[in-house]
Design a protein around this nucleic acid. Sequence first.
DNA 1: AACTATTTTCATCGTATGATGAGACTCATG
DNA 2: CATGAGTCTCATCATACGATGAAAATAGTT
Lengths: 206, 206
Amino acid sequence: MMRLMKKAIGEAESGRGPREDRGVISARIISAARDEFIEQGVSGATFRAIARRADVDPALVHYYFASKERLLDAATTPPPDFLDNTQTAISAPLAIRGQRIIEHVVSSWAAPSTGPILYATFLCANVDERTREKLRASMSANFIGATSQRLPQRDRLLRAGLVSSQIVGLCWHRYIWKLDPLATMSDRDVISAVAPTLQKYLNGRM
Amino acid sequence: MMRLMKKAIGEAESGRGPREDRGVISARIISAARDEFIEQGVSGATFRAIARRADVDPALVHYYFASKERLLDAATTPPPDFLDNTQTAISAPLAIRGQRIIEHVVSSWAAPSTGPILYATFLCANVDERTREKLRASMSANFIGATSQRLPQRDRLLRAGLVSSQIVGLCWHRYIWKLDPLATMSDRDVISAVAPTLQKYLNGRM
DNA sequence: AACTATTTTCATCGTATGATGAGACTCATG
DNA sequence: CATGAGTCTCATCATACGATGAAAATAGTT
């Protein structure tokens, strides 16, 4: 912004930018890249458009992130506490595990620090094989695998897979496609609508 | 193919192509476009790559379909009998409606005439606003709306939305992300695993 | 104040894209 | 066999892309 304003107003000061905290600029580029990935898709997002959105020289994006793949990687990596909270939720006592999982999902999508990352990950996993593999590993090993831990019956993996499928379908309806009624319900109502199904998948009769 | 062979072998016959049934070429272009959309995304699919895959001159793609949007439209339009079968499934007697719906979904994804179209539609709806609107209309009005018809209780739309969400989550796991165990189970097992949930959403206690 | 390493800008390269127009070709008529 | 409409190919345009290198600007150190 400062950069563009200088140009626009045509200040006497040289066009070369002042130093700014590297982390700040990097974060701004990542955020801009994520938005472009979401709106334009992986192929549609260009270094130039990302730079424009982050208000930065296109070559600078290339300086921070050598390739589009590394940008995509940075844009789809969740903060560590998200993974921690996931672990906590899927390790909850069996009787309340369904409730805890759906609460975790809903609150993560609502949080500004994780929602856009989930959004970008879900979308880019369809095109980019690397992101897909990341998501597959995360879902399969961490989620489906871990959720199934300490499930009493057989069908452990099937049960966890069904839990995951219900959650993914909910996310797509509510957060990505924004289909009514799931998109406009309150978090509370969504949780109470879905939790029983998850719980039945976890330890109900099949 | 004939075209390329002529070039490769260098026959005396002129390079200009012979007549071919317009429908055949058009269908080949649509199919090639769909594959490119699936593999490369909407922005990543190029007229040239589509033409190469369909073994056709790039300008010919432009001759048949003036814009990428019209190609995308053609590639994501399901055959009419798919819509008919959907109507039939969601109009089944309430007691067996869940079963009928999941059977319809699974068999549609398995069929070569509809599976790739569903695949492309699911993927492209994320980027292309027009496809998204098509899917939203199709899901929202035709599916969620119609499924809720003749449901006894209140919560009609919520029930239909939950049915839809479970189905979408299943599709994503099984057909797009190909996550185990849902991806490798037989159609029969998937149907019997999911049908009870759908039925509970339709007319169970909430 | 001079020196060095890092960050940022600018100009430019080769390539690929969507689009278009001119013309070659085929085929069904007259 | 001449004509004209529909089909297909080729060559080309302007534009946008990712990438790179040279140079300018800054910060930190001495």
